[in-house]
Design a protein around this nucleic acid. Structure first.
Lengths: 91, 91
DNA sequence: ATATTATTTAGACAGATATCTAAATGTCAT
DNA sequence: ATGACATTTAGATATCTGTCTAAATAATAT
């Protein structure tokens, strides 16, 4: 997925909150959903966008699906920002 | 402006391109606009969103309005990302 | 004063997005 | 096999967003 997809994924506050939740480690879709007022379907939709953007990774275990952070894409984003002060090229 | 505003401002590819343009130094609204296919009005709208988000700063000089980067907000964003790998709190 | 140039503001509109409810899929226990 | 649980998918809808043209504001030059 392009860096544009990563940006779009992170433009929504709920999705950024999900990312911050996952800083502490992997969590099931239901547990993630429990932290928000939105329906499970809505959170599932957000998770799918984060997954498409490669910001998170999912792993099935029986009834549950666990999600965790993919830090390598996050490093790419840091690169975009740091280059702003260094005058490098991007995208 | 909140960090949410910064995120929204950067979620649009044209606005990110504007930011990258300004890496090389300050530039008038017209010169910025000349780099894009959109109308002046559209670019002006993008500039106003970037300004509200404190990502850029404007300065009037006669007929022209010059825009330049505000790097301190960019540093805030870098902080958001780097904390993801360090497990700190945000927002 | 009038015209020209630079830029923004206002209003309209098509397309994108976040959300919901309801239905579908998949897994486990009985 | 049936029922309960976990999660996703489908379809609908209201709101948000990027874009346009046209009009407004502001500065300069003739």
């Amino acid at each position: 997925m392009s860096i544009a997809g990563t940006w779009k994924a992170l433009s929504d506050p709920t999705r950024r909150d999900i990312i911050e939740l996952l800083k502490s480690g992997k969590m099931s879709a239901g547990d993630i959903s429990a932290h928000f007022n939105s329906s499970n379907a809505t959170i599932s939709h957000h998770l799918s966008i984060l997954k498409q953007a490669d910001l998170i990774h999912d792993e099935k275990d029986g009834k549950y699906i666990y999600y965790d952070l993919n830090t390598s894409v996050i490093d790419e984003m840091i690169g975009w920002f740091t280059s702003l002060s260094k005058g490098e090229e991007n995208e």
